[in-house]
Amino acid sequence: MAQDMLFICILCRASHTEEVQASLSEGQSLFDRLQAGLETSDEKHHIRLQPVRCMGACDRACTAAFIAPNKLTFMLSQLSPIDSVPDLLEFSCQYIATSDGKVPYKDRPATIKQKIHAVLPPLPSQS
């Protein structure tokens, strides 16, 4: 069965300073906090958190992408490694619950509404 995925760029370094562990990039901190949140969530068996080394949006760090077969892809940027975690976890549940990734705008958490970098259509089905 195909699985919904949440990609997080672990190399991202935000231009502003937040209180995160000095030895970690902000992207790695975001990944670690999401991983801890998913471990205590019922959704941990449904979304796969995947670290990536670069998503090509270095000037808009921290970046993430929700992706799954036959669903919209949501690319997010300028995420806080601390403040965005609850909203990303909430959106993970919403994204998983849809068959096409179309979470109604009015239902999306604030971080998702504010930090969308791009929404990409699903790949066309090969017939």
Rank of each mutant, 00 (worst) to 15 (best):
Q3V: 13
D4W: 07
D4R: 11
D4E: 13
M5T: 10
I8G: 06
I8S: 08
C9E: 05
L11V: 02
L11E: 13
C12F: 00
C12I: 01
C12E: 08
C12T: 03
C12K: 00
H16W: 10
H16L: 05
E18Y: 03
E19W: 01
V20P: 02
Q21S: 10
Q21H: 10
A22V: 07
S23D: 11
E26D: 15
G27Y: 02
Q28N: 07
L30N: 03
L30E: 00
R33T: 04
R33M: 00
L34F: 02
A36T: 01
L38H: 02
L38E: 01
T40Q: 14
D42A: 13
K44R: 04
I47A: 04
P51F: 04
P51L: 01
G56I: 05
D59H: 13
D59L: 14
A61N: 10
F66T: 02
K71I: 07
K71L: 04
K71E: 01
T73P: 05
L76W: 03
L76M: 00
L79K: 06
S80P: 08
P86D: 02
P86F: 08
L88F: 00
L88E: 01
L89D: 06
C93W: 09
Y95L: 04
I96H: 09
A97L: 13
S99K: 12
D100I: 10
G101M: 08
V103C: 11
P104R: 06
P104F: 10
P104M: 10
Y105G: 09
Y105C: 12
Y105K: 15
D107Y: 12
P109N: 07
P109F: 12
I112N: 13
I112Q: 13
K115Q: 15
P121R: 04
L123P: 02
P124W: 05
S125I: 04
Q126Y: 10
S127I: 08
